[in-house]
Design a protein around this nucleic acid. Structure first.
Lengths: 212, 212
DNA sequence: CCAGTATTGGACCCTGCGGTCCAGTAACAG
DNA sequence: CTGTTACTGGACCGCAGGGTCCAATACTGG
């Protein structure tokens, strides 16, 4: 549903399309959807208006959706391989570091995914719903890891993986929001460390050694 | 700097101005800055274009700033009296409940303050900076409470109030972001509970009783 | 009552921007 | 070689929306 552009694409066309999405992503991620005009995109990609609508017949909405897809792919990739195997505390630590390393290396501070959704909610609810779906996928991976940890005894039986994942995910999003606002990576690291501390508090007592 | 409207206001004028801000706040908080036109505000307040610019010579920017001021005042008020006396665990619990109660009772899900800043960052950096200043004030109150708790021994001497406050604040903002996206209060409660769990992990060991 | 100022209403302007159209060019299939 | 389809350039359109102006009306202080 996200790539229903023209029926057939030649190699050249695909390249142009990719170039548009990549450049547009940089612009939108830095300046927001409302702060980026199609003319900006046109200028940044050395293309013409007709090409934009050739590759994205749905107009700006479709382009924004493609950007969201791309960005989500990037973010998930940056968290691998840890993201799929959050079964141990070591994996969570690695995941934390990967996330910090990724966002610390980004030119534009902050998390355009969370930012994007908050902007779209009041503007383009359909697109917002799609992006929320992506975020649910992300959050689901955290929850799955926590579920497996409960199975294996690394979390207490009364721990609620869904709720814990929600809290960790909120910490990530909030940390990124503040990272963007304050132009510093520290909010993200502080939020992540606190979230992981909270996770460890859901580990069984009597076995502090297992926390490392 | 935030209320440099006309020099003198009659009672009637002040009332009109207040009505404009209040109604505009509802619109902007629900639909975002970009999703709210001055014409929407005009229609919603039964006023005219000239009145908008009479009371907010700076145009939309100034209006948005006034809205941010109002909303920040509301949010801070909802957290009192706990917010100023976060010296005990009981106060933190009360604070948490007050926050949940406030946002749970709002018609529009989510936290327009964090949302606002993320939208403004790419559109109106000056306004964004002002709102960030407000958020710093808020965060500062959390930090101050934690500082006093460290003084009084409720937190370990090696705890970092600034960093902990940052983490809690990030949890609040992230929880609210997800609350808006998912149309549920649960992300906020989960994030807050985890944040408070992390705080308690910074309490001195050997005295678990003091946690209650 | 009178000047002066605050408060309104609403017509108007103009830029920016999303979106359309068409005509010209390149590339592929047969 | 030729028809067809993808690709590209750019002029153009319509309108939404921020912002200006002016003239009419209320209100205030003296």
């Amino acid at each position: 549903m996200t790539t229903a552009t023209p029926a057939r694409l030649t190699a050249k066309g695909a390249a142009t399309r990719a170039r548009i999405v990549a450049t547009a992503a940089d612009l939108v991620l830095a300046r927001g959807v409302g702060g980026t005009s199609l003319d900006d995109v046109r200028a940044g990609t050395l293309t013409s208006k007709s090409q934009l609508f050739h590759y994205f017949p749905g107009g700006k909405s479709e382009l924004v959706l493609a950007i969201a897809d791309l960005q989500m792919e990037r973010v998930l990739r940056a968290q691998r391989p840890f993201l799929d195997t959050l079964d141990t505390w070591a994996a969570w630590d690695g995941w934390r570091d990967a996330l910090v390393a990724y966002y610390g290396s980004q030119p534009h501070w902050g998390c355009p995914i969370g930012t994007l959704v908050s902007e779209l909610v009041g503007t383009d609810p359909a697109a917002a719903a799609e992006v929320v779906g992506h975020m649910d996928r992300w959050r689901g991976l955290l929850r799955d890891g926590l579920g497996r940890m409960r199975e294996s005894g690394l979390l207490r039986a009364d721990a609620d993986p869904g709720r814990l994942a929600l809290a960790v995910f909120a910490a990530v999003q909030g940390g990124l929001l503040l990272t963007q606002a304050m132009r510093s990576i520290e909010p993200l690291t502080a939020a992540l460390d606190a979230a992981l501390t909270a996770l460890r508090a859901a580990a069984p007592a009597r076995h502090p050694a297992v926390l490392r």
